[in-house]
């Protein structure tokens, strides 16, 4: 059963990746002459023909597709025409900076969102609960570019305590991380809250209470591990939103990461880089979802059984 589940999920992940790569190929090839799109406008027809042959565009479409696919498997997305380096190298240079931002955001969101969600559930309808829910709605509705600009206005331009943009010291990270983490932490808090509310209403919680476990122990030892699984899922699914948010946030704060490379490449129509980033994002998302799926499928029955046992 489990093996079958894992095999299906793996197969789906592969198909998703294949669809992304094919999508890029189709959009790129079937909408016009790639030399028109990939090369600058001001070159002569003989150079264009040279590239057409070099890229195999005179070949049949299926052969082009196979070549393209094989190159993509090797991580070869072509040369950036803007600065003549392999696209993949340019992307890799930016990855650590985005990861830095992403990981910091991730940990801050969890550190803020989970306790808030748990406390909101435990003290339901209290001011903590209301504050948490307001925070979640705020994070959901606040465009992160606007939040970033408000932060710059307040902390960089008026109070002058933080640098307005750029990369380097920890001070540079404060505002971007805060901007990104707001929406993410809100979503996690909200989800943790509803997962906890459900767990707290189950029978074994009443048993734990009857056994005289302290409230702290009841909540963190008995209830939270059972609420953790749905929370893991939402964390996985929120990754996409976070990647999108990172693109915008990096632009607001001039953070030299993949997101900023993407938007400048889109503006310049540097398509080698754009397709490389699209595939990279797809791989990230698919792996994350696969991990969440597998973790869920593997953990779920065991944890439930564990919960039942504790109730006796």
């Amino acid at each position: 059963m489990n093996l079958r589940y894992a095999a299906i999920k793996l197969l789906r992940a592969m198909i998703t990746l294949w669809l992304v790569v094919t999508f890029v190929f189709v959009v790129l090839r079937l909408t016009g002459d790639p030399t028109q799109q990939l090369l600058p406008d001001d070159i002569g027809p003989e150079i264009r023909d040279y590239y057409r042959a070099a890229w195999g565009l005179d070949r049949p479409l299926w052969e082009q597709y196979l070549r393209y696919f094989e190159a993509a498997l090797r991580g070869d997305f072509g040369i950036s025409f803007r600065n003549s380096q392999p696209a993949i190298d340019l992307i890799w240079q930016r990855v650590p900076k985005t990861l830095e931002l992403g990981l910091a955001t991730f940990f801050c969101s969890l550190a803020l969102g989970i306790p808030l969600g748990v406390l909101a559930a435990v003290w339901r309808d209290s001011w903590v609960d209301r504050l948490t829910m307001s925070f979640a709605v705020f994070g959901f509705s606040m465009p992160n570019f606007f939040l970033g600009i408000l932060l710059i206005l307040l902390f960089a331009l008026n109070l002058r305590v933080l640098p307005s943009s750029g990369y380097g010291t920890w001070q540079h990270m404060v505002m971007p991380v805060f901007t990104l983490a707001t929406a993410f932490a809100g979503a996690i808090a909200r989800f943790t809250r509803s997962a906890m509310l459900e767990v707290l209403s189950r029978d074994y919680m009443r048993t734990a209470e009857a056994e005289g476990a302290s409230r702290f122990r009841q909540v963190w030892w008995h209830a939270f591990p059972n609420a953790a699984i749905p929370v893991v899922t939402i964390v996985g699914f929120s990754l996409g939103g976070m990647i999108g948010g990172a693109v915008v946030t990096e632009n607001v704060f001039a953070w030299p990461g993949v997101g900023r490379l993407l938007t400048s490449s889109v503006a310049d129509r540097d398509l080698s880089i754009v397709q490389g980033i699209v595939v990279l994002v797809a791989i990230t998302m698919v792996s994350a979802n696969l991990l969440v799926d597998l973790a869920y499928g593997w953990l779920d029955p065991r944890v439930r059984v564990g919960g039942q046992e504790r109730s006796r």
């Binding site: 998703t16 992304v20 699914f237 996409g240 939103g241 990647i243 999108g244 693109v247 915008v248 993407l262 980033i277 699209v278 994002v281 797809a282 998302m285 698919v286 979802n289």
Partner: peptide, 8 residues
């Protein structure tokens, strides 16, 4: 659902 739509 797997791809962030902003990227697409």
């Amino acid at each position: 659902a797997a791809m962030p739509f902003l990227i697409i």
